[in-house]
Structure formats: structure tokens, C-alpha cells
Design a binder for these strands. Sequence first.
RNA 1: UGGGGCGUAGUGCAAUGGCAGCACACCAGACUUUGGAUCUGUGGAUCUUGGUUCGAAUCCGAGCGCCCCAGCCA
Length: 560
Amino acid sequence: MSETSVPSNFIREAIEEDLRTGRYDRVHTRFPPEPNGYLHIGHAKAICIDFGLAEAFGGKCNLRFDDTNPVKEDIEYVEAIKEDIHWLGFDWEEREYYASDYFEQLYQWAIELIKKGKAYVDDLSPEEVREYRGTLTEPGKESPYRNRSVEENLDLFQRMRAGEFPDGARVLRAKIDMSSSNINLRDPVMYRILHSEHHRTGNKWCIYPMYDYAHGQSDSIEGITHSLCDIAYEIHRPLYDWFLDALEIYHPRQIEFARLNLTYTILSKRYLKQLVEGGYVSGWDDPRMPTLCGMRRRGYPPEAIRDFIERVGVAKNESIVDVALLEHCVRDHLNKTAPRVMAVLNPLKVIIDNYPEEKEEQLEALNNPEDASFGTRLVPFSREIYIEQDDFREIPPPKYFRLAPGKEVRLRYGYFIKCVDVVKDPQGNIVELHCTYDPETRGGYAPDGRKVQGTLHWVSAAHATDAEVRLYDRLFNHPDPDSAEEGKTFLDYLNPNSLKVLTGCKVEPCLAKAKPGQRFQFERQGYFCVDLDTTDNRLVFNRTVELRDSWAKIEQKKTG
RNA sequence: UGGGGCGUAGUGCAAUGGCAGCACACCAGACUUUGGAUCUGUGGAUCUUGGUUCGAAUCCGAGCGCCCCAGCCA
């Protein structure tokens, strides 16, 4: 086990102690998703912890689908989940397991518990079971069926399996303690009748084990040492231990950690589903979604997500991490890996009056000024170019470094230009600019040493490629959309400007052949990636994340 | 009112009886052919209250606050 720079945490320490004391002599974890939805950034935390810890200790991590509820699960999700885990960079090798693989063993163990007098078939209706359970402050009552004979229980349980009873008619329950202060121990249901086709076992079964009965035993079968899970299961741990002890089988250790929450983000599967089904987003992989497939489409590199999870740390505190940290990690990675390119999102035509009409030249540009290994490229330049509308102000505010009447700026890797005229339409909108250029400043340097404050990105009009650019912003305008005020729901906090589609954007010709998934920095603007909707004659970019913009901050402060 | 868990800068995580530190965010400055990146610097925290101790974020008592548990969901 090589010493990594990853900071320690309480789970790592617990594992180290278990290894030291000999409680376990190896580390084997598992990531146990239920195939009933898509993975999101919250799952990424669990994945990184489960796979990451195993790796750190030279152990293994299994992928196990917790598929004990056929009503909610689907094969569609298992494929998506596998793809997302691989995308994050983790591999379970040949250890792809399913709780449903263990149904027969689980059934045999249930029979064993019945024989030991530790489980019984209950005929109470779901409503009655609830009534008999008691409340948080009052103990429950024992079911009248609680003390059936072993023979009767065996007979009934076998007939449950055989399909003799309709859904909900009976359940198998563990016989523990109806007056326990831990409600999970008040004779929890082990099996329920569900005449439903399972995506893997088909119609072989009509009784299905509950999570509490299936999970620990599945861990045991797989020889898991450390079963890491959400803090919500902490109160289930006595039950996890109870089944394993009652069965007298190999006993893994369950350790719980706090799940991830992000500001301006919703991570509940139910709400995410609502966003998709309500048409508030285009699908599970909408780039505004916190799903891994959404982030992938948005252009978030998996390395950035892993870095983020690492920085968040592992603890038991319930916390809400600032989404700015995630964005920082994304920028940090992309800054090192994304080639730079020029793209004009809101074009403003500029005519360089003293540049010859038919002339055209190729200017050399750096693909990454911070890393020479990215090489250089040639960018065509000509008399008519586009610059960003925001890069010109007829009446420049103080500290505005960009173009204005009479002002001189640098065109990145090009020439110094000076604005000499502003052309407007009858409504007073600026439609084009006339400038002059200084031929001595080719490449962006003035031989006489004069300086300009601003450097603008640009694209030659005649050579530009058209593109559609989708600008994404946070989906919610409330830092904690989940905790809505009275009378409101998370939907009331949807940001109406979370998607802005720009068409007619002008990008460097070298982007014409860009392929879906490729990431770039559009200089001075942000990181963008080529969207899946891109075809041979349609170029679509997604804005992954903006570059930090200190000018926007200055302006914002001035306007209030 | 039962049980379980958690309280450290704005946020997240460290400090495991010995100078409360790191990251992000924020603010100021330097540098800059990206108002990016980078670099430097400033401010800001132990829930409260008693106690033990030479010394407490840490140990003990009391209190307060927040989260979770009453699915035949996971």
C-alpha cells in the first residue's frame, strides 16, 4: 500500500485499526447501488470511498446491484450505472454481483431462522403491522401470529414462495423485540410477497427479501470486510449485526459516513426524477443535472470530480458543500488540459479600414500559453473580423480596458487596432465598427514599446465557423432548494435562466472538425465541450464552466 | 416526551490533553498578449455553561441546537 497524499479520515483509521488488531486481515469493500435511477455526484462520493479505500489498502471492491425490489428496478439502470462508474475511473474487474444472485441462499437462511425460532410468518395486513409497531415514544404490540409453531411457519413460508398468496397477504418477520426503543428492531419484515417480474430472475420468485435482510448477508457471502454506507443506516446497524449473529455466519463491519450535499443542487432521486418527467430539463443527462451522465455531457472531467470528492473529505457531519469548490476543481483540471481557442459568442463586426481587401494571413497562436507541449496553430486573419459585443463600449466606464472610440487594444496574437467609427442602425443599435490597425504590431507586440490595456479575442469573418453555444448556469437560484419555505417546493427555486442558447456564434475554423466530448477553453470566457447533438453540419458547444471574471465583479460592485 | 447521530472561520475538512491549521469562498496587492492562470498578503472559528488539569476543541457533568428512525423502499 503506497502512501498517498489523500488525507486520512475516521474510516481509514478504523480500517487501519482492524488490520492492526487482526479483526480482518485484508480490505474488501463493495459499492451497492439499487438499479432504480441514475448515479449522481452524491453517489460519486460513495464510489470514491468504496473503491478508493479498497485500492488504498491493496484490497478489492465489488460492484453489487441491490436489486431486491423488482417493482422499482430496471435493466436500463444497471447499464447506465456501470458506464458511469467506469467513466469515473473505477473497475470492479469480474466482480459484478447482484443481490438477486443470492435469493436462494437468502431463502435457505430464512428457513434456518424460522427453525431457530427467530423468524415467523405474520398474517397482519400492512395497516395492522403499522399499528402494532407502536410509535417513537410508545412500544409496539406483539402480533397474534408471533408465536406460531416452527412447522406452521415453515409450511406458510414455503407456500408464500410457491405463490399461494396474493401480494400483501403475509410477510416473514424477524422475531426480535416489539418494545425496542430502536424501531428497526420491532420485528422487521424480512420478506414480502410481490408477484412482479424481476429484471434478472424473471418470474422465479414472488417473495423478495427486504434491504435489511439482504444487505448484510450479501456482504457476508462476498466476504466483505468493511461495508461502508450512508449515515441513515446507522440506526439499522444493530439489525445488520443481529441477522449475521443469528445466522452465525461471517460478519463484516458496517461503518457509516455522511452523504454529500451541494449548494444550489438537489440530489434526491425522487426530485431528480420529477425534473426529468416534468420536462424541466431535457433528460437525465441534461448538462444542468447533478447526475454523472449530466456532468459528463456538461464537460466535467472525471478527474475533477474525484479531486472534488477528495477535497470534501469524509466525516459524519451532515454538511452542504459549496458548489464553488466543484467548479474550482473543474477549472483547475481543465486549465491544465484544455487547449485554448478563440470563439466569439455575441459577434460584432469590425472592419479594419487600412487592411488590404484581398489580403489574408495566418497568425501563429499558442494552444496553451502555460504548456509549450500543446504546440501552436495558425489562425487566419483578414480585413473583416468579429469581436465580442461586450468588448466594445461607446461610452467606456472607468477601468474599462476594452475597445471604445479612439481607444487602442490588442487582438490576441494579432495586431493593435484603434476604433475610428461606430455604425448604427436606425434604432441606434451598434451594427459595426471601423478600426485601423498598426502593421508594425503583428503578433501583438509594439516595436515602440507602447502598451495597451486590453487584449480581445476575435475570429476572421470570412473564415469563421458557425456554432450553437449553450450557456448553462445553476439550475436553482436558492442555495438549499430542498428546504423550501412554507408553501413552496424546490420547483419554485428553479433558475429561469439556467439555459441560454446562442446561435450564430463565430468560432475559429480549427473547431469545424471537433468531435463530441472534446473540451476547449474559449479564451477569456470559459471552458466548453462539444455536445452530443453535434453533426457534420451542426456544431454545438456546452459551456462547462465560466472562467473567473474579475471585470464582471468590478462592474457588479459599481452597479450595486 | 423514545432511540440513534452530529455541533471548529461563510462553506467543507484537520488538530486524537500541549502555539486551533488546510482548502474553497471573500478582501487587498503583484504580475500578465486570456480582466484567465500564477504569486503575495489581510480578515475571520472551537454551541452554551460548570468541572478535572500546569494546560481542554479534545476528558467529565448539565443544558441548547440540528439531522435521522414509526415502508410489505433502499
